[in-house]
């Protein structure tokens, strides 16, 4: 099945405030999709709905044809924008945890990536720098053999060199049968690894398309277009 994620008429209201407004979106397999929007546009709400951490007020989300629930969670690997790991644990202990939780977790893949950047697995998370913690977390999330990876702000708190490394991890784990959705507002750093973008504005989709088509049509970078569309 080519269609991996299908969202129809999706709305989410917090009380009287509408965070997502009748949104439609379809994502196929083998894509790296940028979910771009200013703060408060509804990015994280959308991600949490897909990941099953929030329930929709209206509309539906299908992942691999299944509604959000046990089946969809099995095939989604989600990197939240805040850490959820126990900082007292060592990397080894966290790896064990992932193995228990996720049948598709590839321990060797994780250990190879950690070794490649010299992270000692006996180290406790709390002794690591913020950037190293973020790298560990991303490696764990990318080490699952999932169908849909959702990364919420994976490069927000890291230096430019680490950013390059993060992009390298994402690219080297690219799987043509899976797709990766990356939410960010640091567009210029990430736009070359994307092949599709979604612009989200006030809970609605403002634009969705292939990045090179957009560059060709607009004659400018996605970053420049973003600044134009979301001009304050």
């Amino acid at each position: 099945m080519d269609e991996l994620l299908r969202i129809e008429n999706l709305s989410k209201k917090y009380g009287s405030k509408t965070a997502l407004d009748r949104l439609d979106l379809t994502v196929g397999r083998g894509h790296i999709v940028g979910l771009l929007g200013p703060n408060g546009s509804g990015k994280t709400t959308l991600i949490k709905l897909i990941a099953g951490l929030l329930t929709a007020s209206e509309g539906k989300i299908l992942v691999n044809g299944n509604t959000v629930g046990v089946e969809s969670k099995k095939v989604i690997s989600y990197l939240p924008d805040t850490t959820y790991l126990n900082m007292n644990q060592t990397v080894d202990e966290v790896i064990k945890l992932f193995k228990t939780f996720y049948a598709d977790f590839d321990e060797n893949r994780a250990k190879n990536m950690l070794a490649a950047i010299g992270i000692e697995t006996k180290t406790r998370l709390k002794t690591m720098s913020k950037g190293t913690k973020e790298k560990v977390q991303l490696i764990l999330v990318m080490s699952r053999r999932a169908d849909l990876y959702i990364l919420d702000e994976p490069i927000a708190g890291v230096d430019p060199a680490t950013r390059d490394y993060v992009l390298n991890i994402i690219l080297s784990n690219y799987d043509p049968n899976a797709s990766i959705i990356i939410s960010t507002h640091l567009i210029s750093d990430i736009e070359k690894i994307l092949d599709q973008v979604v612009f989200i504005k006030n809970g609605k989709i403002e634009r969705f398309g292939n990045v090179d088509d957009i560059r060709e049509k607009e004659g400018k970078s996605i970053d420049a277009l973003f600044r134009e569309v979301f001009k304050c």
Binding site: G30, N168, S172, P176, K192, I193, L194, D195, V211
Partner: peptide, 14 residues
């Protein structure tokens, strides 16, 4: 394709 994409830091589909 994969190696070239990683080397150039671009999307494999591109």
């Amino acid at each position: 394709v994969r190696d070239l994409a990683t080397e150039a830091a671009v999307n494999p589909n591109t």
